[in-house]
């Protein structure tokens, strides 16, 4: 419930700060997003460059790269996801504790990018796991990753803990884990998760 602005400022003068649980929750989430130290390909180098001296990801409270998925909040899918790697990516995502966010960094993670025609390239990680922010580019510049992080922080600010639009980890109908694809004789089985990814239908001509 929104608090009256006048009342709030009056109380602040007396040293009393009022905020909803939601605000505190979102503020603390957004200020310490710990990414998973997880590089796949070329974009990972730009991710490291973002964390290094010139771009300094620490300014946004996200410099603590955790090698273990169990300590991380944010998975930056930085690079091409191949079919051989896809089950491991989904498994890592499942191992991350909620709340968890995913940034698909670069054209390959979004759609397969320049390697889309490859027989071993997954055409976008959103075939298997839900993605919060997509960053285009091949590779995206470090500034783009910073922008994506700020975008994610704005998304976190607008999270709701209750109500119709509540976050997915408080929604009982949402799965906490996503099925891991298996290696098949010709392709991954299944090639995509029907619950997450819906291929666009084409309407063309008479058909």
């Amino acid at each position: 419930m929104p608090v009256d602005e006048g009342l709030r400022s009056e109380l602040q003068k007396a040293g009393v700060f009022i905020a909803s649980v939601e605000t505190i929750y979102n503020w603390s989430r957004r200020s310490s997003v710990w990414p998973l130290q997880f590089g796949l390909a070329c974009c990972a180098i730009e991710m490291i460059a973002t964390a290094c001296s010139r771009f300094d990801l620490a300014r946004f409270g996200a410099e603590v790269f955790r090698p273990s998925p169990r300590q991380a909040d944010l998975m930056i899918v930085a690079g091409t996801v191949t079919k051989k790697m896809a089950p491991q990516v989904v498994r890592l995502f499942n191992q991350m504790p909620e709340p968890k966010y995913v940034i698909a960094m670069g054209a390959c993670a979004i759609s397969g990018g320049p390697f889309k025609q490859g027989y071993n390239v997954l055409k976008g990680i959103d075939r298997f796991i839900p993605v919060d922010v997509h960053i285009p580019g091949c590779p995206p510049r470090p500034e783009a990753l910073l922008n994506a992080l700020m975008f994610l922080q704005r998304q976190i600010d607008n999270q709701h803990l209750t109500g119709v639009n509540k976050v997915r980890w408080y929604d009982d109908t949402d799965p906490a884990e996503y099925p891991i694809p298996r290696f098949g004789a010709h392709d991954l089985e299944p090639p995509f998760n029907r619950a997450v990814w819906h291929p666009q239908k084409i309407q063309r001509g008479a058909a």
């Binding site: 079919k83 051989k84 759609s111 027989y119 071993n120 055409k123 976008g124 290696f183 098949g184 004789a185 010709h186 392709d187 090639p191 995509f192 291929p199 666009q200 084409i202």
Partner: peptide, 27 residues
Amino acid sequence: LMWDEFQDFPMRKDYQEPDDYEWEPTP
């Protein structure tokens, strides 16, 4: 390079890739 269960030889000229083509604006 490929996984052990894979059965095709993908660099051969007559290799048929799996049908996982996705939507394209101008096919």
